[in-house]
């Protein structure tokens, strides 16, 4: 039997034959929607995995899921966790942070590369 030489990662996402309709006025927005829904899916997958893990641990008597509900972090735990949240949010909200920085900084720090190219190539 012949083995298949396939890039299964790229090929899984292959486009269906036929022109794709776009629904939103701005296709860029529709692409972001598509990426967002994929990420929502992956979050659900991670959540389900965690749920499986908890249920297995519980069934083996290693933990009780009520312990999760009644868990109170120690001072140190709390600090570590809140730091994690802060880092996480900063990472995903980066574009907005940078947008604001652009508003705040002086015009000469917002120089466009194109302008620089022009400036330094003009005789």
């Amino acid at each position: 039997m012949k083995k298949l030489n396939v890039d299964y990662i790229a090929d899984a996402g292959k486009k269906a034959k036929g022109k794709r309709p776009w629904f939103l006025d701005n296709p860029e927005v529709e692409k972001v929607l598509s990426i967002t829904m994929a990420i929502a899916g992956e979050l659900a997958v991670a959540r389900e995995r965690l749920d499986t893990l908890e249920r297995i641990l519980e069934s083996k008597g290693i933990m009780n899921r009520d312990e999760i509900e009644s868990f109170i972090p120690s001072e140190n735990d709390a600090n570590e966790r809140q730091t994690w949240h802060a880092e996480y949010l900063a990472r995903i909200m980066r574009i907005i942070q940078q947008d604001r920085e652009a508003l705040e900084t002086a015009p000469d720090m917002n120089e466009a590369v194109e302008d620089l190219v022009k400036e330094f190539t003009e005789e």
Binding site: Y8, F23, D25, M37
Partner: peptide
């Protein structure tokens, strides 16, 4: 309607990707 349609189309595409990724990694 546009938002619903964009989501519905995208979900059909996600279903294809999900099925194909299961199948193709074990196709041999």
């Amino acid at each position: 309607w546009k938002t619903w349609s964009a989501l519905r189309r995208n979900t059909m595409e996600m279903r294809q990707q999900a099925g194909r990724s299961v199948v193709l990694r074990q196709i041999d």
